[in-house]
Design a protein around this nucleic acid. Structure first.
Lengths: 141, 141
DNA sequence: CCTCTTATTGAAAATTATTTTCAATTATAG
DNA sequence: CTATAATTGAAAATAATTTTCAATAAGAGG
């Protein structure tokens, strides 16, 4: 997982520094969306002189390479997580923050209908489901 | 439209000041999502001594009363627009920024499937379509 | 291994967005 | 008309992100 990302960075002319590797490892292994500050805190454990700026700069490159994506939530849109290559949607646990991907949406019909009705040429769609994951349901009851 | 909002603000114990009325009028009549700064610029035309802070404070109250909603877009999540009372989704023109509502999504089946597959209890969903509106398609070709 | 080039670094400053503080003003209940 | 308390705008404070810059270090080519 991790090595693949480093290869991609390298192949795109980006150097593999310790700071960058720390950020890659943290975000590539997380099942939660993480903010730059959260990544920075975690990265300091691996490499205590890392700067927050390097986190921002690495996120910028990972996003550009479509390895990560920004996650939009009601409370904030500052967090990032792994991006899936195929077209997939997010299922977010509002309690613990865990995020899963899902696919199998069949929005073709809906999109065709809306397109005809409004005259829009639709090029992209966002679908996110919010709820409570199995674990959190157990914990609360 | 506008008067309804003022009534609601009033009934909720908020006073109707000129600054507040200016913000309400601007956002309630817009078909585009507007940022606090954009609203502030427009409001200055009506009331040149308005402060940006009052825009923020009014938006806060309108959002709390669910008269407006924050609009999430790839480039930024700082803009607001009218909220619809019923459950509806957004159709956004990436060229001119116009936003329309649409309904008639039938996601029940999908949600039930995902719910069964993952164990999530799903409480909310976001669906947004991005594309180019009829007008902008014409203009470009 | 070297060495050179240049991307990358972290710190600090700058910028941008938002929130808080505060004394003055004003909406509105009575 | 008056009293009260919500609201105001300005300025300061906070938070998030970006830019600047001199020092460092990755990695290509010998």
């Amino acid at each position: 997982m991790n090595h693949k990302w480093l290869d991609i960075l390298s192949k795109n002319g980006y150097r593999l520094t310790d700071s960058r590797k720390a950020v890659v490892e943290i975000i590539s292994l997380s099942t939660h969306a993480l903010t730059p500050i959260e990544i920075y805190e975690k990265a300091k454990a691996k490499r205590d002189d890392i700067g927050l700026v390097s986190v921002y700069r690495t996120l910028e490159k990972l996003e550009e390479l479509k390895l990560i994506q920004r996650v939009h939530q009601p409370a904030s849109c500052q967090a990032f997580m792994v991006a899936s290559q195929e077209h997939q949607h997010l299922l977010l646990c509002s309690t613990c923050g865990e995020i899963q991907f899902f696919d199998g949406d069949d929005l073709e019909t809906l999109i065709a209908t809306i397109s005809k009705k409004t005259g829009f040429k639709i090029s992209e769609h966002w679908l996110q489901l919010f709820g409570q994951c199995a674990n959190c349901q157990k914990t609360q009851s």
